[in-house]
């Protein structure tokens, strides 16, 4: 895509996002701006809408109201770009996602999982894709597991393959949806380590997490979700160190027991 004046603005932007399932309103007008290299953590109790919101950002959920903008241009409802609107396909090619339950493709090896996007979507030559995939798997500490099937990997290893799979698309933004919530406690560290490395390398990320220490450590900005709205937001130090609202204090207290 051509360089546009808007490239200096937020790379991914959500304006007034609403989402309802029938009469049940999950999101009630959420705004978010992600600028290049920024890491935003989304925290809050379960059911507060943070996962639904992050899934709206790459249109896995279609918002019932509001706009998502990528590089300043609104996302349309079509898969392909149309006029001034960005296609959902374009958005997803450039905005990677890592899921709570990994969602690795079980019929492909670790390497197969990582090359799948570049080959099928980006039409990269296989040799080139494999070379890149080996580098990425080495980067997440799994160079020995290229030929292993997901069934033979631990949870932490699966999640690191999933991160490599997302990175293989060379995304401009990475969305992480509770990526350590399904892991055994002793495996959480290895995954967080990889994400911290990405943050240090300047990757733009939106992270839904229950790991408060981690959120404090890597994020530039923290959004506290409560009942479908952003109840409080600010720097990690403000939100996690000096919470203003009673709700946020109560929420954080549960992590300091």
């Amino acid at each position: 895509m051509s360089t546009r004046p808007t490239d200096t603005g937020p790379i991914l932007q959500a304006i007034g996002i609403y989402k309802s399932y029938g009469p049940f309103e999950v999101l009630k007008g959420i705004d978010l701006q992600l600028t290049r290299g920024q890491v935003v953590a989304l925290i809050g109790p379960s059911g507060s809408g943070k996962s639904t919101f992050i899934r709206c950002l790459n249109q896995l959920e279609t918002p019932t109201g509001g706009v998502v903008r990528f590089r300043g241009r609104a996302i349309g409802s079509d898969f392909h770009d149309r006029g001034e609107t960005v296609g959902i396909g374009t958005l997803r090619r450039n905005v990677g996602m890592v899921f709570q339950h990994f969602n690795l493709f079980p019929h492909m090896t670790a390497l197969g999982n990582v090359i799948e996007g570049p080959i099928t979507v980006l039409k990269k030559p296989r040799r080139e894709a494999e070379e890149q995939a080996r580098e990425l798997l080495a980067r997440v500490g799994l160079s020995q597991k290229c030929d292993a099937y997901p069934a033979h990997l631990s949870g932490g290893q699966k999640q690191r393959v999933a991160i490599a799979r997302a990175l293989a698309m060379e995304p401009e933004v990475l969305l992480l949806d509770e990526v350590t919530s399904a892991l055994d406690p002793e495996l959480v560290g290895e995954v967080l380590g990889v994400i911290r490395g990405l943050a240090d390398a300047g990757m733009t990320m939106a992270i839904v997490t229950h790991e408060m220490a981690f959120a404090a450590d890597v994020s530039d900005r923290v959004l506290f979700f409560d009942g479908g709205v952003v109840a409080e937001q600010g720097t990690a130090a403000q939100i996690l160190g000096h919470p203003e609202s009673e709700r946020l204090r109560g929420f954080l207290a549960r992590f300091h027991q």
Partner: peptide
Amino acid sequence: IDRGQREAALALGMNRSQSMRRIVLPQAIK
């Protein structure tokens, strides 16, 4: 086939037929 499989395929930027052909069908046929 778990919904997450299709979601992972779509999240990579695949269109519906690609996600069906490459991800869902190979597992479903088995």
